[in-house]
Design a binder for these strands. Structure first.
Length: 427
RNA sequence: GGAGAAAUACCCAAGUGGUUGAAGGGGUCGGUCUUGAAAACCGAUAGGUGAUGCAAGUCGCGCUGGGGUUCAAAUCCCCAUUUCUCCGCCA
């Protein structure tokens, strides 16, 4: 939610900022409603004030034995007079709210406008691996090593699903354990949230109302719930409608959940295997900070996410996203993208974003500023740390050997009972 | 899933139609006492948000949320949500 005061003060600037996000909007209607709202509000409040004063005089009048029916009539009259204005006011407020609820976050000033094509790689770490033998892609490797069963995934669930088997399941779990161990070491609090969330949570995170159809809704439960598309949705709602104490900030959380997404339908050849599915595993970090500290927190999250990839020994790059490519609720995003040799491109494994006060406004997540005693909105930030569904293929492909085996990254070995090499299974 | 009960300020809690922004206690803050602290005692403090104003202030909304009854609602009615208890079912 954008602060309506920003729009009141400088609608043109807001309009231009949103345009960078490829969001064309006309704010003149909104400002008109807003002005009308204020007029009607004054009328209604003045009426209520008179009603209240009159009503409050009743007990005293009764005590004095005065005739009270005149007061009753008068209050009733005022009430009838403001009734219509009250209804118009409510209608305006709904319109204003609904309009604001759909607007995306304002991107940071330093971002380029436009979409993906304007993303900038800001650093590349490691070398592109080169191979002196014919490359296998991750689907072939995962199958020959007995790590993933795509056929049976299709059989028991349908397209866009797979089954981790045997050492594949262990590799997946080792990744998650490695992530968890790192976050714990950094003092983040481990959260295991519910996967089925209510409508309000989706609204606060900024997914709704605009992208209500992008998540899976469940039947048979009232009110309806949806499967979380990322643990961020749960984590940024933890302190909804709360006023935190300044000493509580920053709050640093991480959660492991599967993520459920509908996008899997949009298959492309380069997205076969587990690059894009209906469900994938992800560890997500979320921070709540004071506004002046969110830039620092953002750097920390990028560093942490990046470090996880680096320690695995994978070749990757970091991109600063253009305004139009960052998600609806976010003001700034850096992607960490790991190299997938078989398709020769870099795929996102982590998206680190600063949402500033956009989600906090929606969820009324505030803190009390010690100095002024006033409440202020927190900033919320999130970063994957990490999603396994691209790391897993990257490990298989980048660390494959001529004999068809795959080297297990050193940092994962302790979580895999010391297994150093994944070897092809005999048929 | 069935049956009941409850939801009041930072916490506990009183309050069943009329000066209730809401008793009392705890807490917090300040003070007295004390070498210091504790205890005791004294005093202060009641959230949030909107309108208006340079400000002090004034006014609106607020007792889980939404609707209703009434001249007037924390109090009565309806709906929802959450929590608790009992029964059923179950990893």
């Amino acid at each position: 939610m954008i602060d309506i005061n920003l729009i009141r003060e400088n609608p043109q600037k807001v309009k231009e900022a949103l345009a960078k996000k490829l969001w064309e909007t006309d704010l003149t209607e909104l400002l008109k409603w807003d002005a009308e709202r204020k007029e009607k509000l004054k009328i209604v409040e003045a009426g209520k004030a008179r009603q209240n004063t009159l009503s409050a005089s009743v007990p005293q009048a009764k005590k004095n034995g005065e005739d009270v029916t005149k007061i009753f009539a008068e209050v009733k009259k005022i009430s009838a007079e403001i009734k219509q204005t009250e209804e118009e006011l409510a209608a305006l407020e709904t319109k204003i709210h609904d309009f604001l609820a759909e607007l995306p976050n304002i991107p940071d000033d330093d971002l380029l406008g436009g979409g993906k094509e304007n993303n900038k790689v800001i650093r590349v770490i490691g070398e592109k691996p080169s191979f002196s033998f014919p490359l296998k892609d991750h689907v072939e490797l995962a199958t020959s090593l007995g790590l993933v069963d795509y056929e049976r995934g299709g059989k028991i669930a349908g397209r866009g699903s797979w089954v981790y088997t045997n050492l594949g399941a262990r590799l997946e779990w080792a990744l998650l354990n490695y992530f968890i161990a790192e976050h714990l070491a950094d003092g983040y609090e481990f959260i295991l949230p519910p996967h089925l969330l209510n409508e309000e949570s989706g609204y606060v995170a900024g997914q709704f109302p605009k992208f209500r159809e992008d998540v899976f809704w469940l039947d048979g439960l009232e009110p309806k719930r949806f499967l979380l598309p990322t643990a961020e949705t749960a984590l940024v709602n933890l302190h909804r409608n709360e006023i935190l104490s300044e000493d509580d900030l920053p709050r640093k959380y991480f959660a492991y959940t599967p993520c459920y997404r509908r996008e899997a339908g949009s298959y492309r050849t380069e997205e076969r295997g587990m690059i894009r599915g209906y469900q994938f595993d992800k560890v997500e970090m979320v921070q709540y900070t004071k506004p002046e500290e969110s830039d620092k927190a953002f750097e920390e999250l990028v560093f942490k996410a990046e470090n996880l990839v680096k320690k695995l020994g994978l070749h990757y790059q970091v991109s600063k996203l253009a305004a139009g490519d960052i998600s609806h609720a976010m003001a700034r995003t850096y992607d960490i993208e790991v190299y997938i040799p078989s398709i020769g491109i870099y795929k996102e494994v982590s998206s680190a974003s600063n949402g500033r006060d956009y989600q906090a406004r929606r969820g009324m997540v505030r803190y009390r500023d010690k100095e002024s005693g006033k409440t202020k909105f927190v900033h919320t930030l999130n970063a994957s740390g990490l999603a396994t569904s691209r790391i897993f293929p990257a490990i298989l492909e980048q660390f494959q050997q001529e004999d068809g085996s795959v080297l297990v990254p050193e940092v994962l070995q302790p979580f895999m009972g010391g297994i150093k090499v994944l070897k092809p299974i005999k048929k």
